[in-house]
Amino acid sequence: MLLRNLSPPSGLCNGTRLMITSLGENTITGNITGGSFDGKPVAISRIVLNIEERKLPFILKRRQFPVRLCYGMTINNSQGQILDKVGIYLPNPVSSHGQLYVAISRVRSAADLRFLITNEEDVPGNHTINIVFSEAFTDITTK
């Protein structure tokens, strides 16, 4: 996953997923996966990052690739993407039905959707609690 906006018109934005095809000492080549630039070959070079700490009497300069190994993403980060396979990890009950809907709707087919639900002791389970705040319904009257 790309960590910096290198060239937005070319599709190289923060959060862009890449399939790496070649690793060099100063250059990474790969293909963009997903979005309107899907399959486009790109080359990414190392960039200089300056770290200025007030405690240090000097400026620390690092040359590194602006990429990060990516195995997963948050529900909010997945909005607008369609994926072939989706695994949803729920260590806590979901309190927002909208977020659960967004997570489930990212996959093309229900057969390619998997859940991992754990309880407080990290023991896998097969259900989760639907959190409803009953206080929200106390002043509602029906006609």
Rank of each mutant, 00 (worst) to 15 (best):
S45C: 14
N31H: 06
I32F: 04
T29E: 14
L60E: 14
L49D: 15
M73Y: 05
L18I: 08
N31V: 07
R54W: 13
I32E: 01
E25P: 05
I47A: 08
S22Y: 14
G72F: 10
V42N: 03
L18R: 00
I47Y: 04
R17L: 09
R54Y: 07
G35I: 02
G72T: 14
I44P: 02
K61G: 06
I32G: 03
L18Y: 00
S78H: 01
I75R: 04
I32V: 12
I20V: 15
L60C: 14
N50F: 07
P66C: 10
P57C: 06
T16P: 00
I47K: 07
V42A: 09
K40V: 12
N76H: 15
G24K: 01
L49F: 15
I75G: 08
Y71F: 15
N26T: 10
C70P: 06
T27Y: 12
P57S: 13
F58W: 12
S36D: 15
M73A: 14
V67C: 15
G34C: 04
R17T: 04
G39Q: 02
L49S: 12
L12S: 02
E53G: 06
R68K: 15
Y71I: 04
R17N: 03
I20Q: 02
K55Y: 13
I75M: 07
V42C: 09
L56K: 13
F65G: 13
N76T: 09
T74W: 00
K40G: 02
R17C: 03
G35S: 03
L60P: 07
V42I: 11
T29L: 00
S36A: 11
C70H: 10
Y71P: 07
I47M: 10
L18K: 00
R68Q: 15
E25Q: 14
L23V: 10
K61V: 05
G34I: 00
L18P: 00
K40C: 09
G11S: 11
I75C: 13
P66A: 13
G11C: 06
N26D: 13
I51N: 10
T29P: 06
L56T: 12
A43N: 10
G35A: 05
V48H: 11
I20K: 02
P41D: 08
P41K: 02
N31S: 07
T16V: 01
F58Q: 11
M19C: 12
G35D: 01
S78Y: 04
V42W: 03
F65D: 06
N14R: 02
N76Y: 13
L56M: 14
P57G: 09
K55I: 15
G39P: 01
C70E: 08
L18T: 00
T16A: 00
R63G: 11
M73E: 08
I47F: 12
S78F: 08
T29A: 10
N50H: 14
R63P: 00
S22I: 05
F65A: 08
A43F: 07
T21G: 08
I32S: 01
G30W: 05
I51P: 04
G11E: 02
S22D: 06
T16G: 01
E53I: 07
T29G: 01
I75Y: 04
E53H: 09
T16K: 00
Y71R: 04
L49P: 06
I75D: 08
E52D: 11
G15N: 05
G11M: 07
T21I: 03
N26E: 13
E25N: 14
Q79G: 08
L69I: 13
L12K: 01
R54E: 15
L12E: 03
I32K: 03
Y71K: 06
R46Q: 13
R54S: 13
I28H: 02
